[in-house]
Amino acid sequence: MTTAARYATFGVREAHGVSPAYERLALAVAQDDEVLALLEALPPAKRQPNLLFSVVRLLGGPVEEPAAFHDYVVANWPAIEPEMRTRWTQTNEPGRCAVLLPVLAALPQPLALLEVGASAGLCLYPDRYAYRYGEHLLGAGEPVLDCVATGVPLPDRRPEVVWRAGLDLNPLDVTDPADVAWLDALIWPEHTHRRARLRAAAAMVAADPPLLVRGDVVDDLPALAAQAPADATLVVFHSSVLYLVPEPRRDAFAELVRGLPGHWVANETPEVLGCDGLPEPPSEAQHNVLALDGKPLAWTRGHGQALSWFG
């Protein structure tokens, strides 16, 4: 896919109906030869719309109007480029726990959670958040994770987690204001509810930090998994991570995780997971597939806002 097509697809499939500002920017960049030429000088993995838009937000640039965005990017590219080369889209959306919860709660308890691509580890606490699936409420306190669930076997209790660890090439620290600022910049402009949710989740995690290890998804996974307590069900999970991993490494990861004891929970696009024979998604918007041990179970939205069960 060309860079222009990548931005157009992002605008039409991911941002449409979710972020008007990012939809405008993405469609404008797709036709902006000057900005596209700057992006083409970066490695392919660094040309992502989310990465560009988030870096501009982090630096205080405008992300509401395409013309102002264009002028800012062109004028400030010497500051933008190094940020894009050194950063990753590490969106750490705790709302994704709402789509993971029905699977996690149904597994043999207690759980030892190991998240691949953990960022700051906010998704390692599905037992601590409160959930609202329409009229179905689970847990208490803040933040409350809202999710529209269709055909889902909703649990009546949260999972019991006795060990939690994360693996990431660049773990983020919620006690570091600079890392929290990057997590904030990754949230789309209109999503004030997600920003409030980030603050509440970060405060909770800072009071009881998980084990976060800097490492590779393949090379360093076995050693970390071996630290999980033997009397708990090991669950290796990830959300919107594998698209950043080159395809041969994805295959190596899948083979490795299938050989570990316990279970594998994936929440990724169907293209990344290589799923065939799926039912039609609920809408034309981009959906992830929630899968347990390689078996597809449901369609999910990227920030955990919706879950449509078909498994």
Rank of each mutant, 00 (worst) to 15 (best):
T89D: 05
S54Y: 04
E83H: 14
H70C: 04
R85Y: 10
Q109K: 03
F69C: 07
N76H: 15
A98W: 04
L101P: 01
P110S: 11
V103D: 11
P82C: 09
C97N: 15
E81C: 11
G95A: 03
A79Y: 04
V63N: 09
L107H: 02
E83I: 07
L101R: 04
A68K: 13
V99N: 02
I80H: 10
A67N: 09
V103Q: 04
Q90E: 14
V56D: 00
V99L: 04
P94Y: 01
V99M: 00
R96A: 00
W77N: 06
P102Y: 04
A106S: 15
A105L: 04
P102M: 11
V73A: 10
G61N: 13
W77I: 06
A68P: 03
E64L: 14
T91M: 14
A106G: 12
P66V: 11
Q109Y: 02
H70A: 07
E81Q: 15
P66C: 13
G60F: 08
C97F: 02
E81D: 08
A68L: 14
L104N: 02
L111T: 10
A68F: 07
P82Y: 04
P102A: 07
E83N: 02
P108M: 00
P82A: 12
D71Y: 02
P108K: 05
P62V: 03
V103R: 01
T86I: 14
Q90Y: 09
N76F: 11
A105F: 12
G61L: 10
P108I: 02
P62I: 01
E93H: 01
P82Q: 12
N76Y: 13
V73W: 05
N76I: 02
R57T: 15
L59S: 05
P66S: 12
L100N: 00
T91D: 07
A98Y: 04
T89W: 03
F69V: 05
N92C: 09
